[in-house]
Amino acid sequence: MQDVVLAMLAKEPAHGYELRSRLRAALGPLGEAMNAGQIYVTLTRLGKAGLVTSQRAEGLPDRPERRVYVLTPEGQQRVATWLAEVNWPKPDLAEFHLKLVAAATARLADPVTLVDAQRREVLRRLRDAQRAALDRSMDPVAGLLLEGVVLRLRADLEWLEACERLWAQHDPTGRKAGA
């Protein structure tokens, strides 16, 4: 979040609310749940770290709290570093995998039941993302993000199917299929 806010300031100084609407526009439907508080908390942290400074905006006596945020040279340096960084966000599959292993070995729970619950959740997310992507009025830039979300969720579902296949065989009680 910090890096993103910094990068959004790189073009020109901005008010907090401007940053928020820029972010929301870029995220499309995924940005709808983002609240203003997150931006201001982040800006405060960035200020303490010396990466941004702020000045009171002129001509708005009724909203004296309005500030314009500007990158410091350190902030600009950090943006450059962030852009050059190569990393890729990864969902933490290891934790879920270990949960299944623990559930099975300690007989804490049926791993297949855990997989089922997880699959429902992933399917629900996939449905929402795909539904949003069906909207023709979607801004293509925000739509591109949704496409990525959909692809990853599909991959997650495939992996969950593989989990189910394996753990269904390992489960000593066998799988009970109820309608």
Binding site: R120, L123, R124, R127, D128, Q130, L134, L153
Partner: peptide
Amino acid sequence: PRIAAVADRVIAMRDGAFVDDVASA
């Protein structure tokens, strides 16, 4: 699974039987 986006209800099937039946919230 993308079909789920256009369904009111999703049923999961395994080995000829229904194992899950979710009204799409």
